[in-house]
Amino acid sequence: ITGDVSAANKDAIRKQMDAAASKGDVETYRKLKAKLKGIR
């Protein structure tokens, strides 16, 4: 179950990262990237 949750989280975070990148929001992008590392 835990694996599914983190996989879903990663997917959601990647989508947020894409949105931040397209807006040029480097700050948010970095925060999300750090979150991704924390999940692993």
Rank of each mutant, 00 (worst) to 15 (best):
I1Q: 11
I1R: 05
I1F: 13
I1H: 11
I1Y: 13
T2S: 10
T2Y: 14
T2I: 11
G3S: 12
G3N: 11
G3F: 09
G3H: 10
G3Y: 07
D4G: 09
D4R: 04
V5A: 08
V5E: 09
V5H: 09
V5R: 09
V5M: 12
V5Q: 11
S6D: 12
S6W: 10
S6E: 13
S6Q: 13
S6A: 07
A7E: 11
A7M: 14
A7I: 10
A8K: 11
A8T: 12
A8Y: 10
A8G: 07
N9T: 14
N9L: 15
N9M: 15
N9E: 15
N9D: 14
N9H: 13
K10Q: 12
K10V: 15
D11E: 11
D11F: 01
A12L: 11
A12S: 10
I13H: 00
I13S: 00
I13V: 03
I13Q: 01
I13E: 02
I13P: 02
I13F: 01
I13G: 00
I13W: 04
I13Y: 03
I13D: 02
I13N: 01
R14E: 07
R14W: 07
R14P: 02
R14F: 07
R14T: 05
K15E: 08
K15M: 08
K15G: 04
K15N: 05
K15R: 07
K15T: 06
K15Q: 07
K15I: 07
Q16L: 13
Q16S: 04
Q16G: 04
Q16Y: 03
Q16C: 03
M17Q: 00
M17Y: 02
M17E: 02
D18G: 06
A19Q: 08
A19M: 09
A19L: 13
A19F: 07
A19D: 12
A19G: 03
A19K: 08
A20T: 00
A20P: 00
A20Y: 01
A20I: 01
A20K: 01
A20N: 00
A21E: 05
A21V: 07
A21S: 05
A21C: 12
A21M: 15
S22G: 05
S22A: 14
S22M: 13
S22Q: 13
S22E: 11
S22V: 09
K23D: 06
K23H: 04
K23E: 08
K23W: 01
G24P: 00
D25I: 00
D25N: 02
V26I: 12
V26A: 05
V26M: 15
V26C: 15
E27A: 05
E27K: 06
E27N: 04
E27M: 04
E27T: 05
T28Y: 04
T28G: 05
T28C: 12
T28L: 15
T28F: 04
Y29N: 02
Y29T: 02
Y29W: 06
Y29P: 00
R30A: 07
R30Q: 12
R30V: 06
R30Y: 07
R30S: 04
R30P: 01
K31H: 04
K31C: 11
K31P: 00
K31R: 09
K31V: 03
K31Q: 05
L32W: 02
L32R: 01
L32A: 00
L32M: 04
K33S: 07
K33F: 09
K33H: 07
K33D: 05
K33A: 12
K33Q: 12
A34R: 10
K35R: 05
K35S: 08
K35D: 04
K35G: 02
K35F: 14
K35H: 06
L36Y: 04
L36I: 04
L36F: 02
K37Q: 13
K37N: 13
K37R: 08
K37D: 15
K37Y: 07
K37F: 05
K37H: 13
K37P: 04
G38A: 15
G38P: 04
G38F: 08
G38I: 08
G38W: 09
G38D: 10
G38M: 07
I39A: 05
I39E: 08
I39Q: 07
I39G: 06
I39M: 11
I39K: 05
R40I: 14
R40S: 14
R40P: 09
R40V: 15
